[in-house]
Design a binder for these strands. Structure first.
Length: 206
DNA sequence: GGTTCGATTCCG
DNA sequence: GGAATCGAACCA
């Protein structure tokens, strides 16, 4: 039987690099007007704080990244490329901000809702990409800061079936130019939903 | 106040 | 390979 329970704050109040592999296999459940969609995370990326040039928090606290400095277990949603939203699970360690970007997932429940939200999508079950994930779950800026560990929240984080460590792969983060040497992307090796890797652009000189 | 470019996706 | 499309961050 599935260990279906909410993730606890203790499990996320740690270094995002440690929390990231833990989140593989966990499930996000989003309830909106259309109903409830539930997905199993199969690809994530860790972002730290001032020691991570790729992190939104690298240059300090701003209104945009504020949620990343708050309590673990909240949802950090940001708008990018003028049209997409990406979602992160906030983590914390050593008084530094941190979060784990959810990059890809498999739909566990609510495929009909996902199809309605993404009519022209190739697959209704494989959500390969962070913005595809948020659109399937119906997440946008209104969900920024939501507590994922509260059963009454519109979006919740549950422990799913554990992923055996042997099936977890790591590599550099997608689309990130800085910190190419840190393998902080984690994915489930045998999942068909894992996104395709793209290198980041050139590192911009300061 | 103006400019740059992104933790992306989809189409050609 | 390139467009779409907005705003946060950065520089003047």
């Amino acid at each position: 039987m599935r260990p279906d329970r909410l993730v606890t704050a203790d499990e996320l109040a740690i270094d995002p690099v440690v929390a990231a592999p833990f989140l593989l296999g966990c499930e996000l459940e989003s309830t909106g007007e259309a109903g409830t969609v539930r997905v199993r995370l199969v690809e994530v990326e860790a972002y730290r704080g001032k020691d991570d040039p790729a992190s939104h928090c690298y240059r300090g606290r701003t209104p945009r990244n504020d949620v990343m400095w708050g309590p673990a277990g909240h949802l950090y949603v940001y708008f990018v490329y003028g049209m997409h939203f990406c979602a992160n699970v906030v983590c914390a360690g050593d008084g530094e901000p941190g979060a784990v970007l959810v990059r890809a997932a498999e739909v566990v429940h609510g495929a009909d809702i996902v199809r309605a939200r993404r009519p022209s999508a190739r697959s209704v079950t494989a959500l390969k990409g962070p913005a595809i994930l948020t659109s399937a779950l119906g997440l946008d800026r209104a969900h920024n800061g939501v507590d994922l560990l509260d059963p009454a929240s519109p979006v919740r984080l549950l422990t799913g079936e554990r992923v055996p460590p042997a099936r977890i792969r790591t590599g550099p983060r997608v689309g990130v130019a800085a910190a190419m040497d840190t393998p902080w992307r984690f994915w489930v090796d045998d999942s068909p939903a894992v996104s395709t890797y793209r290198r980041g652009g050139r590192v911009r000189p300061r």
